[in-house]
Amino acid sequence: MNFLNKNLAESLFRLRMVENEISKRYSYQEMRCPVHLSIGQEAVAVGVCNNLEIEDQVYSTHRCHSHYLAKGGNLQSMISEIYGKKSGCCGGRGGSMHLMDISVGMMLSLPIVASVIPIAVGAAMSKKINKSKTVVVVFFGDAAVEEGVFHESANFASLHNLPILFVCENNRYSCFTDLSERQPSEDLTRLAKSHNIESIKMNGNDVIKVYNQSQKIIKKIKNSSKPFFLQLDTYRYVEHCGPDNDDHLNYRNKNEVKKWLNDDPIENFLKYLKKRKQYDKKKIEVIKNKIAIQIKKSFEFAKNDKFPEVSSLRKNVYAQ
């Protein structure tokens, strides 16, 4: 396995295994906040974020675990945050939907749909004013393009030539509502085009393709200081919010579910490795074991971590 493939493998497995562990332990009712898991959508975050430097910034949404981990966010701080504990990345004040780790450029996650998009555009404006050769990436779901503020932000980014990559992570469903009930076409790049923003729509479950394509795009953004819109089609395996599969509710077509399960980002990647004769079962096992140990440690830490002091309730309402 070459260096890149090893990185991608580590990233993909970390995301999948962390989310599976949250899913497994959620029923113990110690993680007492809503969780929006990224299982099935890993290639989007991994493919894009593996092209980023620490100085490049990422902004995310309620479904932020994958972006946080792919950008290198500290696992222990993430799990503590979901447990509502003192050592969490927000000291327990944000929970699962507010993950951030500015030491690695994971700047902010916000739960209101599209709310983070203009903030990322403002960050890109700061890059432009500072003449910084870094890029801002903002991840959002398919429903975010239905919010007016997406269009306000896209227009501004286009008008001012800002170095920002809009990644529309299309998992087809806004909670239970399918894209076809919300949009006249599945091609969301048409919305970017209307703002004079260059765009591509592609399968988001092929990590190699996502990696290669976003590498080109990010280079281009850094050189031209112009925004780009990348639609990555993907699928979530579990419910919109919560740890379980909810396909017994029959809001998703069975054939559609089957099709996407056969297009699994991790299986796709392993197939790719095998085809390239890069697959090394032992190395993969070593990677997975290492991750499993980190996960176990992080959950143990979070469980034993303290809650924030009650006296800190009104701390940091205002900055001094």
Binding site: P118, V121, G122, A123, M125, E152, F156
Partner: peptide, 17 residues
């Protein structure tokens, strides 16, 4: 542009940077 919510978010993005 006539984008009150957008420019407020943009202002916040500048402010945290």
């Amino acid at each position: 542009p006539i984008s009150e919510n957008g420019i407020t978010g943009i202002a916040i993005g500048l402010a945290i940077n």
